[in-house]
């Protein structure tokens, strides 16, 4: 094996903090009911952020419209449950599949132009989809949202309960499986080529990496992840509204990923935990204006320097591990 392959194998080894994280996440299922709704929210947000991480953190595509795929997945799963079958897994698969198709179709649009053009195009795609949903109230429920979504039992035997225990277990397991998949993908030669593209697309192309094909592949893949997250939201809350396509959703997930650290597999999960707890905490003492503090945090975060902050944290962790 050459050095690059050896490096990948070494990095692909499981470390104990990862194992502890997942054990803790599953152990939370044994808690008395009361916190499952927020845990479910965190798991879905983490999956959504993980999907953004694939394109932003690994391939370097800045997107301001990632909610497009989240929304497509949510509406697909919601409509399927309302009109055809309440089976959760069927909805999850179909939501991911439709989002994949939309992702592939729009991936061709993000290949061209500068970061600014990409920002605008991704933002525009989310806006267009939002307008379509708005213009078809018969299908989407319009401003009232999609009502009457009823879910069948999971795997035919676990009913979705009022406290959200089943919902959390369902979302967490989906997140776990998709994290495994993402882990396998980014720690492969494919993942390495993505990072090469992010650093320098021109040089990556000169080295023989098919830049456009790789970008299309990862964008489509990220759309599938985001669609799954959207489907989870639709199924576990039994409701979809136009809000799934809105700008603030795309901005929030960007914020979540940046807080957790982009370009790192657990960045989305860390960010989702911190962001949701923060939002919950701020909303407890100022329910209406929590957005102000999130904004302030964001400005301070960028001014101090993302790299310095997150990098400093990693340096501290590395220092602790070496001791």
């Amino acid at each position: 094996m050459d050095a690059a392959a050896l490096g990948l194998v070494r990095r692909a080894r499981w470390r104990w903090p990862e194992v502890v994280l997942w054990l803790l996440a599953y152990a939370a299922l044994l808690m008395p009911p009361g916190k499952f709704l927020i845990l479910n929210e965190i798991a879905i947000l983490a999956l959504f952020a993980l999907s953004l991480d694939l394109i932003l953190g690994y391939a370097g595509i800045v997107s301001l419209g990632h909610a497009a795929f989240f929304g497509v997945g949510a509406y697909t799963a919601g409509l399927l449950a309302k009109h055809v079958t309440g089976d959760p897994l069927a909805g999850l698969l179909l939501g991911a599949a439709v989002a994949t198709v939309v992702g592939f179709a729009t991936s061709l649009l993000v290949l061209r132009g500068s970061d600014l053009t990409r920002l605008m195009v991704t933002l525009g795609v989310a806006m267009v989809l939002g307008e379509i949903a708005n213009a078809l109230p018969g299908l989407s429920g319009g401003a009232d949202g999609l009502q009457g979504v009823t879910m069948g039992p999971l795997l035919g035997c676990f009913d979705f309960d009022l406290f959200g225990r089943t919902a959390y277990a369902y979302s967490l397991t989906t997140l776990f499986l998709f994290t495994l998949l993402a882990r396998r993908i980014v720690l492969s030669p494919f993942g390495l080529s993505l990072m090469a593209i992010r650093r320098n697309p021109l040089r990556a192309g000169a080295l023989g990496v098919p830049v456009n094909a790789r970008l299309i592949a990862v964008y489509t893949l990220a759309a599938a992840f985001a669609g799954t997250a959207g489907a989870l939201l639709a199924q576990t809350t039994a409701f979809v509204s136009l809000d799934v396509f809105e700008f603030h959703r795309s901005a929030d997930v960007l914020l979540v990923l940046i807080i957790g650290g982009a370009g790192w597999l657990y960045g989305g999960i860390a960010g989702a935990v911190i962001y949701t707890l923060l939002q919950d905490g701020i909303a407890a003492f100022t329910p209406q204006y929590w957005q102000f503090w999130i904004g302030l945090l964001l400005v301070a975060f960028v001014l101090v320097g993302r790299q310095r902050l997150v990098g400093g944290l990693y340096a501290m962790l590395g220092w602790a591990r070496r001791r």
Partner: peptide, 20 residues
């Protein structure tokens, strides 16, 4: 700074302005 930093920074400002 990178466009991503500028986007995050100005979104933060927008959030603050809206809430204020």
């Amino acid at each position: 700074r990178s466009p991503l930093d500028q986007v995050l920074f100005s979104i933060g400002l927008v959030f603050m302005a809206v809430a204020f």
